[in-house]
């Protein structure tokens, strides 16, 4: 059902965990639907110096979270905002159609975390 790459990320998720004093945090999904993820980012010189995730959900939810962090790490914020759900799914050699919408939330989570960072920076000024 899942590609080898999805299973590999499910088995060995990259960047799993929390960042204690994160510069931005994004939470998307809902445990009622079966998928919930929280993305933590650390920003340095307008770049994603560190990124971590925590995810409640199916294999696809965990694998897409992991894949997204790999795609995003080190990128500029502007660049990271351009990462789409489609990019994440393609990097995993595709997802089953039914999982494309419900479990492929990681890019949204990343965008939420970046927006949170911008919001916090604004209020500090």
């Amino acid at each position: 059902m899942y590609s080898e790459k999805v299973m590999e990320h499910f088995r060995n998720p990259r960047n799993m965990g929390e960042i204690p004093n994160a510069d931005g945090v994004g939470t998307v999904g809902n445990p009622i639907c079966g998928d919930l993820m929280t993305i933590y980012i650390k920003v340095k010189d307008d770049k994603l110096a560190d990124i971590k995730f925590k995810t409640f959900g199916c294999g696809a939810a965990i694998a897409t979270s992991s894949m997204m962090t790999e795609l995003a790490k080190g990128r500029t914020l502007e660049d990271a905002m351009k990462i789409t759900r489609k990019d994440v799914a393609e990097s995993l050699d595709g997802l089953p159609p039914i999982k494309m919408h419900c479990s492929n939330l990681a890019a949204d989570g990343l965008h939420e975390a970046i927006k949170d960072y911008y919001g916090k920076r604004k209020s500090q000024k």
């Binding site: 299973m7 079966g34 409640f56 959900g57």
Partner: peptide, 28 residues
């Protein structure tokens, strides 16, 4: 935690079972 990720984890160890999770149903 969620049932489908439990099934996958057990399947990786050779154990086959089911779940009542939405992620394992056709209807979500």
């Amino acid at each position: 935690i969620e049932g489908e990720s439990l099934i996958l984890s057990l399947d990786m160890e050779g154990v086959a079972c089911s779940s009542g999770s939405a992620c394992t149903s056709k209807t979500l």
